[in-house]
Nucleic acid binder design. Structure first.
Ligand SMILES: [Mn+2]
Ligand SMILES: [Mn+2]
Ligand SMILES: [Zn+2]
Ligand SMILES: [Zn+2]
Lengths: 134, 134
DNA sequence: TCCAATTATGCAACATTGTTGCAAAAAGAA
DNA sequence: TTCTTTTTGCAACAATGTTGCATAATTGGA
């Protein structure tokens, strides 16, 4: 059985064409994807269905929002230990100025002192040159 | 002469009503403002004129984008040493989960190790409780 | 103070992104 | 296959932002 089918069944989601296609697109790309990227990759699929598909994958902890920029939202696959109620995404998101891809840097370490402001979550969007373009 | 008029003249911008109003709104609020906030504060001014005004203030280094989230862009006053070609905004932006205001934390310190990715600029959006709501 | 040149504003129209309601289609269980 | 439930696709709508163009305001100088 397909890997994507397994993912969906584990989350008790129906296996549909669009969900498989979207998950496969993520698996075939190491960088985050915007809804527009997905539309281009998957060839003119319905916008509404795509947004609803992404919402379902978000809700079930299969993808997460990697970057929200300029009305352009990017998504990336979650870690296998993410679930409906426990999304843990305290990692750096990196936009390459050369290839314009958005990467999740799970391994990056960060230390912040916000002096009086009590931080619950943070979202660090860095940009520069990725390992491939450097 | 008004403080806002001086700011505009220093940047060789014409002194107009909408520019003064927008700058005053920023001066009277310690937190960042969205175009929608400004429309509400300044009472139904034209949307197009507001966006063009913000763009001019951006271009001249009078304001900067504090946060871009969910098609909602916030702006805040620059430091006095910002100019057309030298915007320096490597500071933390903080969204309070209680009062929903967006603050610039110039004093916060941050250290990131992105292991192989060469960071030119970064944008840290933290959320939690601000000093007033804590 | 008024004029002329330049710049800024307001309006209409449009673009993009995303959402909602609803009927038709597909998926899953039996 | 057949039935029930869920998902999809379409139309319509909403919010945010942009562009072109005519009108209005600003500024420097007569
Ligand atoms: Mn996740
Ligand atoms: Mn600035
Ligand atoms: Zn790159
Ligand atoms: Zn607060």
């Amino acid at each position: 059985m397909d890997e994507t089918k397994e993912l969906l069944k584990k989350k008790e989601l129906r296996v549909t064409q669009i969900r498989c296609q979207v998950l496969e697109a993520f698996q075939e790309n190491e960088h985050a994807l915007s809804p527009q990227d997905l539309q281009a990759l998957l060839g003119g699929l319905d916008r509404v269905s795509l947004y609803r598909t992404l919402q379902v994958l978000l809700d079930k902890g299969l993808v997460h929002k990697a970057l929200e920029k300029n009305t352009q939202t990017y998504y990336a696959l979650c870690d296998s230990d993410c679930s409906d109620h426990a999304h843990s995404h305290q990692h750096v998101h990196f936009t390459c100025e050369s290839c314009e891809k958005v990467y999740c840097l799970e391994q990056a370490s960060i230390q912040v002192d916000t002096k009086g402001y009590q931080v619950h979550t943070w979202n660090l969007n860095a940009s520069g040159l990725c390992v491939n373009c450097r």
